[in-house]
């Protein structure tokens, strides 16, 4: 599903973000990317949804090398990948329903489909009673659930979560990762970049440690 072959990425000459990364993530896997802040976890995720292009190596997503992808193909790649962030990236002026519907609207989905899918996915993440609420009226955990719903509404094959629990208290964080695990059991490949030790230790799963841009360990069901 995702394959990195000897990938090197640098944002400036003296700041390498990834160095010789080799990584293979199978379909329907649940993977934690761990490591210290600035170690390269987010950069690795950004390579997958082609927000950055590495200077060396290859990144295969859905069997296609995204480093060679033409700019016009990128939106179609991203339609198969859901991304969630630590800072939620929600539109403050839109309701919960509006934020989730937005992901379908910008793809030109018909109104009928939007009206059917949005309530469904919001119910699935436990927000069916908050459809008309604005993001500011929600707790951090609820905002992250909206973000997950927005990523899920397009039924992605891959879900990338970049520090999804970074702004949340431990209890809420557990709830969010449980939700991500549920998504994974439905068949979606989930990659979670985190430095939350408790979460990784609690949800034993494949754990890839990245430090200074290099993969230094890769263990099945390994802890932090």
């Amino acid at each position: 599903m995702i394959r990195f072959i000897d990938v090197a990425l640098a944002y400036s000459r003296n700041a390498p973000a990834l160095r010789g990364v080799d990584l293979h993530i199978q379909k329907q896997e649940f993977v934690f990317l761990v490591g210290s802040t600035g170690g390269g976890k987010s950069s690795l995720l950004r390579c997958v949804y082609r927000e950055v292009v590495p200077q060396a190596g290859k990144v295969f997503v859905f069997r296609k090398d995204v480093t060679k992808m033409a700019p016009r193909e990128i939106p179609f790649l991203r339609r198969r990948i859901g991304v969630i962030f630590q800072d939620f990236l929600l539109l403050p002026q839109k309701t919960v329903y509006g934020n989730v519907a937005y992901a379908l609207e910008v793809r030109g989905a018909p109104l009928k489909v939007i009206r059917q899918l949005v309530p469904e996915v919001l119910e699935w993440v436990g927000l069916s009673r908050k459809l008309k609420s604005l993001p500011d009226e929600l707790s951090g955990g609820e905002q992250q659930r909206v973000c997950i719903a927005r990523a899920l509404v397009n039924k992605p094959d891959i879900l990338l979560a970049d520090e999804p629990t970074g702004n949340l208290d431990p209890e809420t964080s557990v709830g969010i990762v449980e939700l991500l695990r549920r998504i994974n059991t439905r068949g979606t490949t989930v990659v979670v970049a985190t430095h939350d030790e408790n979460i990784v230790n609690q949800f034993r799963s494949r754990t890839v440690r990245i430090e200074h841009g290099k993969v230094i360990s890769d263990r099945d069901e390994g802890g932090y």
Partner: peptide, 17 residues
């Protein structure tokens, strides 16, 4: 810019944006 970033992330084409 926030809307534009979200649009890009969810797969809107540049012409749509």
């Amino acid at each position: 810019r926030r809307e534009i970033r979200i649009m890009q992330l969810v797969g809107a084409t540049n012409s749509f944006i």
